[in-house]
Amino acid sequence: MTKIFEISDKALSSPHLAVMLIDLCLIRGVNQHKLLKSTQLFYEDISKGEIKISPLQLFKLIDNSQKLLNSHDMSFLLGRRFFPGNLGAIANVLFNAKNLSEMLKVIISFQQLLFPLMFIQYKQYQNKTYLIINHSLGEFSDNHTTFMAELFCSILVSAIKLRFGQTFPLEFKFPYSQPDHIEEYQVNLGPDVQFDQHIFMIGIENKYLNIQLQDSSKTLKFLYLFQCKKQRIKQVGLIQYLLIFLDKNIYTTLEQSATYLKISPATLKRKLKQHNTSFQQLLDLIKKQKAIYQITVEGRNNDSISNSLKFNDTTNFRRAFKRWTGTTPNTLRH
């Protein structure tokens, strides 16, 4: 049975990310007390390494670090250090994956162990693979969205760099507008970076997924995989849980979703509010992402998309699309 955790639950068993962030800030001369202010974290506890922290505490810490440092490369630096870091057995599994395709599969199935704050939906079309990434516990500000996206991409790119000794051509689509520090994207992520795409998606050609890693060991991989399966935490962020459910049932109501979560609709509403979102927002998000994927990747026409999203007619779909993105499906095609 999967346990659902929420923003204020102290469920992040590994303070890995928090510790790395604190270290980076201290190196840069940030005052420790100011950094930990209102995070309810204590340096002594963290350095002992046995505490569990909540996503909210981590977000607050990120927020503080951004305010105190105001350097735009924190997310990228953090991402570079993330893997292998001290992730333990799972890092060894990743190290012994035979190619990128296998690495991605490990990342997706052990997402809770690796990166419980965001999750990947994996899609393939023709000769390309696409990763659609969403937040497991909601988004809290533009800064938060940007930071997490940068962190995620940086982790992925530096893991590839570490294992393959080079980066592969990846295409990045970000939901937000081009930030001022675009050069960080150019240097860290490569030339193919697009903004205002209403979706956070990474694309890669399949031929790169199958490049063999000569120094990987199947035996070691299985050994560590076995260890990971034992320590695998069967828990998932509330928003992630709900989004995955909505992805499969796009005409679900709030009531049905509440029943699925075994809570009352009022409680669900309240919980979603705590995660800075609402049922309608999440439903729109899923539909929007499906529409954008079908338009930009699969190149489907409006009729086909409005059918697949169960709209009565194309006019309704176009209107809804305009509401989600501020633009029409046709503008997105060009």
């Binding site: 440092l69 350097s71 001022d180 520090h181």
Partner: peptide, 20 residues
Amino acid sequence: ERYFREHSLTDYITGLYSAE
């Protein structure tokens, strides 16, 4: 100093000016 860092005119690490 922060002011400069905030507007990323000088780079803290190298002491050079930044991309901006």
